[in-house]
C-alpha cells in the first residue's frame, strides 16, 4: 500500500470511530439539525482561516462555536428551527462570499465541502488523533452526567447541576468532531457520518453502551469501505463513505428486529430477543 493510502486508512478509521461515539449523544439529544447548522457554519471558519493563513481546525472550531452561541441566544427569541436555519444560511453565505473574493476558488472549496482524504498529511493524522483522544476521555469521564442531562434536564437542574454548562460542553465536543472530520469527508457530509451510525445502532438495541459499540463499528466500517469503493471505482471518497453510513441506516430501518419494517410486516417473525 502506498503511504498516502495508509494515511487515508488511518484517518477514516479514527474519524469514523470518533463520529460514531459522539453521534450517540447527538441522537440522544436530538441535535441532528443543530449539528448540521454547525457543519455549515464551520465552513466559513475554515475559509477564513485559509485566507488569513491560520490553522484550519482552529478557524473552523472558533466560528462553529460562535454559531452555537448565536443559535442558543436566538432560540430564546424565536423558534429554534427557524433560528438555526437563519444562522445556517448566514454562515454558509459568509463562507462563499469570502471565498468568491479569491481568484480560482472552486478547487479549494470542494475540498472543504466534501473532503479530500487522499491528501491527508501526517500533521492531520496527529491532530485527528489528539482531538479524538480528548473527546473520548471527556465523554467517558462524564458519561453518566451527559446521559442524565439528555434524559431529564429539568430533573438534573433540580438536583443542583449546572445543566447549561454541560449542554455547552456537548456542543463543543460535537464541533470538535465536525472539524476533525473535515479532511476526511468535508463539512457538509460530516453530519451523515456523525448521525447515521448512531441512529442505525439505536434501532438494534435499547442500551446506550451497546448502541455506542455498534455505532463505532458502523462508523469505522463505512470509512474503510467507502475508501475501498472510492479507489476501486474512482469516485469521491467523502461521498462514498457517507453513502455507506446512510446505507447502514436504511438497512437497519428495514431489518432491525424491534423497529424494522420487515418485523412489522411479518409479526410472527417478531420473537422476543
Amino acid at each position: 500500500m502506498s503511504s498516502y493510502l495508509v494515511r487515508a486508512v488511518l484517518e477514516v478509521a479514527m474519524v469514523g470511530g470518533l463520529a460514531g461515539v459522539v453521534g450517540v449523544h447527538v441522537v440522544l439529544r436530538r441535535l441532528s439539525f443543530f449539528t448540521m447548522a454547525m457543519t455549515h457554519a464551520t465552513f466559513p471558519g475554515v475559509v477564513l482561516a485559509a485566507l488569513i493563513g491560520a490553522n484550519l481546525y482552529l478557524g473552523g472550531a472558533v466560528v462553529g462555536l460562535l454559531v452555537a452561541f448565536a443559535v442558543s441566544a436566538l432560540s430564546r427569541r424565536q423558534d429554534t428551527t427557524a433560528a438555526t436555519g437563519v444562522v445556517l444560511s448566514a454562515g454558509f453565505a459568509l463562507g462563499v462570499a469570502l471565498l468568491s473574493a479569491q481568484a480560482g476558488f472552486t478547487k479549494d472549496l470542494s475540498a472543504y465541502l466534501v473532503g479530500s482524504v487522499l491528501t491527508v498529511q501526517v500533521s492531520d493524522l496527529v491532530t485527528t488523533g489528539a482531538i479524538a483522544l480528548v473527546v473520548l476521555v471527556v465523554l467517558f469521564a462524564l458519561h453518566k452526567e451527559l446521559v442524565f442531562g439528555a434524559f431529564d434536564s429539568g430533573g438534573m437542574r433540580a438536583a443542583g447541576y449546572r445543566v447549561g454548562a454541560l449542554d455547552l460542553l456537548v456542543l463543543v465536543l460535537v464541533e470538535a468532531v465536525v472539524v476533525t472530520a473535515v479532511p476526511a469527508v468535508g463539512t457538509i457530509l460530516s453530519v451523515a457520518l456523525i448521525v447515521a451510525p448512531a441512529a442505525a445502532a439505536r434501532l438494534w438495541t435499547d442500551r446506550i453502551g451497546v448502541t455506542t459499540v455498534i455505532a463505532v463499528v458502523i462508523g469505522v466500517g463505512s470509512g474503510l469501505g467507502g475508501l475501498l469503493i472510492s479507489s476501486e471505482a474512482n469516485v469521491a471518497a467523502g461521498g462514498a463513505i457517507t453513502l455507506l453510513a446512510a446505507l447502514a441506516f436504511v438497512v437497519s430501518l428495514l431489518l432491525s428486529p424491534r423497529y424494522g419494517a420487515l418485523a412489522r410486516l411479518l409479526p410472527s417473525a417478531r420473537v422476543s430477543l
Binding site: V191, A192, V195, G238, T242, V250
Partner: peptide, 11 residues
C-alpha cells in the same frame, strides 16, 4: 432527515 439529506447529496 439528516441521514436522508446527506445520503442524497453524497449520491
Amino acid at each position: 432527515l439528516a441521514v436522508l439529506l446527506t445520503a442524497m447529496f453524497s449520491v
